[in-house]
Design a protein around this nucleic acid. Sequence first.
DNA 1: GTTAGGG
DNA 2: CCCTAAC
Length: 653
Amino acid sequence: MVLKKRLEYGFSGCSVPVIPRGPRSVRKRGSHKKTLEDSRSCAFELLAAVAGKLLQESESSTSSNVAEGLHPSSIHNGGIKQEQLEKGEALKSECRDQGSWVESVFSSELAPRKRNLESSFGEFPRAVSDTVLEGTSVIPRSKISTKVRHDLKLEIPENKTAAENSPGKVEGGSPNCGDIGRQIKAEGNPNHNVDLTVAINSNSKDPMEIHVNITDSLINSDTSVQLPSYGDSVPNASFPRHKNNVKLRGRVDDENPVGCNVYRSKTRAIRPQTCIGHRRVRKLLASKYWKVAPTLEDCEFSDSGKSMLFSFNGRIIGEQGSSESISNSPEKGVKGEKTSPAKNLGRAKVVSSSVVGHQTSLKSRDSHVKFSIKSFKVPELCIDIPENATVGSLKGTVMEAVTAILQGGLRVGVVVHGKKVKDDNKTLLQMGISHNDDLGTLSFTLEAGSRIASQPPNRKEVPILLTCETHHQFSRSAAMESEVLNASFDPSPANNVVNHVETNHELVPSTHEVIKDGTAPDSRALVAVPAVSVEALAVVPVNQKTRRCELVQRRTRRPFSVSEVEALVEAVEKLGTGRWRDVKLSAFENTDHRTYVDLKDKWKTLVHTATISPHQRRGETVPQDLLDRVLSAHGYWSHHQHKLHGKHLINLL
DNA sequence: GTTAGGG
DNA sequence: CCCTAAC
């Protein structure tokens, strides 16, 4: 028997003693911690499912009856957002058009959770505390979702690297890479026309909702917002402020008089606590619905106060979401085309195979990838604003938020197959982007905060301020937020403050200090002053542990070759199934990209593959004899381990 | 840091 | 391939 031979050889010839450990399979998971949390989770998942459903509804039909039924007056053109707040339940579920994000907050559920606030509270900047704690009246939640549309047409040679790709040719003067301001300036068009549509709906029960649709249109001269020019040589702090002329169109269905008790100095442009939500909800949403909702959005709690809080997501994502952010140029008509497995395979090989280089050189040099980006979406702006704030102050707040984003600069990220491409030096071909390929898996992200790139030399280098991702294009991003998410929601303002601090990495420069020290005239009140940001950052350093500022890139899939499988099988035959580190060292020591977890996983799938009928198997066919060995080794070792384990126990006794 | 197991 | 609990 082959297996036995090998095993014997393994036992005698291997320097590593074969001492299988006791099976840990005893420790079944899922049976523990089945307490309160799970019952809650059910509710969460239920609610999350509802949210997801809503997303889908709003995606398929922006004026879906279902959605409208559930959220009367919540959906506005394009289904930019929905907000539901049911009877004080503080459940919120929102979607932006195309379902680019969803969020859920269940504060009532979270309220009981404990959190130590005192210590953190002391570290919070006084000013912020003041502002946040200042209010006395209950303010409704208001959120502003913005969308800046751009039509981009890109034509990029395939052999351009990703970095070259980003600042590629842009028709229409829309921002493609770098910061918008610069781009615009380069285009000789300092004007950025923004169409603001605001609908405010407020009554005593429902939260006031503000929907702002900012549509960038270079043609539309009806409304305009002039963005600050973003000259490289001009220090950010002294940006010349152009007239910020924002026209608000919309309705204000609020009987309450709109007063102006809150001046802009009250504004705290902080990014408050991101979704103090149940982690499972976030995970659920992020994973299950990430295609429709790639940016699981942050949310903030409006504490009772007059303060205005707005936050924005530090990221902009292609409008259609990562799954289909880029539509192929119509003339190519690839979109509807079915991607054959062979095609996928070919692309996968492009990524991993070295043969590809050959193919590349064979291709005509001016192969171009053509596609158009329909739009980019400006990050969500979350604004808490008192009901009695003036429309003017609202304008100003929106303006602040928008300009803060734009001033921060924008970076373009390239996402291929759902993975963010970090290596700018890779060519499109290497990334599997070729002119005759389906580009459905290619998408872009806009990220705020590339200010560093254009920072004047005399400015102190600041860690990327606005780039900390808060959206959840990838589910693991959500996971990274566990600490924050598990934070309890304490209705007390103090907790809010603390939460704000924790997520303050996206601190939006506010005008608070500027006005306070009187150095800035009112006309400049909207200037997002980077210096403030620096200060704020210094005071409230980014918690790097809680925050991962870069997307974790999923490793490229590297299917095991038959020879690898063979090596794995052999090693497992020798060492058993409980010693993956040894297996790795034994058979894959020089293979960096194969971790012992990979080997373990591969073994798992091998066993599964060997178990199922041949016609059910997919991917590269593993020779049957190898699979046989897998099965026998698996059987042997599971048996062997149990025996040894039993012996071990006996020996202990 | 490893292992096991769920996703 | 990822994540994470349990070692």
